[in-house]
């Protein structure tokens, strides 16, 4: 009876408050550290144009690679789900090799070994090709998972009403799978934008390479790299928002 004045707190509320306080404190600490730093923005100001050009290059590479990634992933998914053993085995082999090796190695082999043999000298083209070949392998696994997650009863119903295999994909399976793979696909696209930063190793003047150069000229490390972080966020956040919007738009389960 004496203790009856105590507010009852459910475990859920305890967890919610702990998480909120923990994250809030972390953010505060982070911003305090940032504010306490003796910033020298005037040192990097003359190079603002270089950073902007790099940001534009990253945007262009990412946008081109994004389209090609979807095409490659679609082809690999079709290969992996094929009724024939050869395309299945080859697609699987490709996915395992690409996912299991560092992007850096792939960029170096692609640019210094493959591109000269194919007589491609344009760094932009090579960069887009390597990046989408890499991201396509990941995305195809997301697509494959989405298609396999559609219950057998849906395939069966499509068969019972007389749809062909292609019609079943077109009208029944893919529309449902798209909705399911949206969040993971958005994550993969954000990764692609950030992975494009490795293309500095082949001398593509993208965002990260520009930031490295500004840093080399000014020794203002954080004044070079914090704008880099903000610039990448400006590219990845819209992807995230677009994905959320589409999830809502295509929702059918209520």
């Amino acid at each position: 009876m004496l203790l009856s004045w105590r507010v009852r707190v459910s475990p859920r509320q305890t967890i919610a408050w702990t998480v909120s306080l923990g994250l809030g404190a972390t953010f505060c600490f982070f911003f305090w550290v940032l504010l306490a730093h003796p910033w020298r923005w005037e040192a990097v100001a003359p190079y603002a144009g270089n950073l902007l050009a790099g940001w534009g290059m990253t945007l262009a590479v990412s946008a081109a690679a994004l389209l090609m990634t979807v095409a490659i992933a679609g082809a690999l998914t079709a290969g992996q789900l094929s009724a024939f053993a050869v395309p299945r085995a080859l697609s699987r082999f490709y996915v395992e090799i690409v996912r299991g090796t560092p992007l850096l190695t792939q960029i170096l082999i692609g640019f210094y070994l493959l591109a000269p043999v194919l007589k491609i000298e344009n760094r932009f083209v090579v960069g887009v090709a390597i990046l989408s070949a890499f991201a396509g392998a990941y995305l195809s696994e997301i697509f494959r998972g989405g298609i396999l997650s559609i219950p057998k009863s849906q395939w069966e119903a499509a068969r019972a009403i007389g749809l062909t295999g292609a019609q079943t994909y077109r009208y029944v399976v893919i529309p449902q799978a798209v909705r399911r793979v949206l969040p993971a696909t958005a994550g993969q696209f954000a990764n692609l934008v950030k992975d494009s930063s490795l293309l500095y190793v082949i001398g593509l003047g993208e965002f990260t390479m520009q930031a490295r150069e500004v840093n080399a000229h000014t020794y203002a490390t954080f004044e070079s790299y914090v704008p880099l972080a903000l610039g990448y966020l400006a590219l990845t956040l819209p992807i995230s928002f677009a994905s959320r919007w589409m999830e809502e738009r295509f929702r059918y389960e209520h």
Binding site: S153, Q154, E156, A157, A160, I161, Y171, V172, P175, Q176, R179, F250, Y252, E253
Partner: peptide, 12 residues
């Protein structure tokens, strides 16, 4: 025509 116990309508 075939009718299933679990309806199997297309949810989308």
């Amino acid at each position: 025509g075939f009718l299933f116990q679990a309806f199997n309508l297309f949810p989308h």
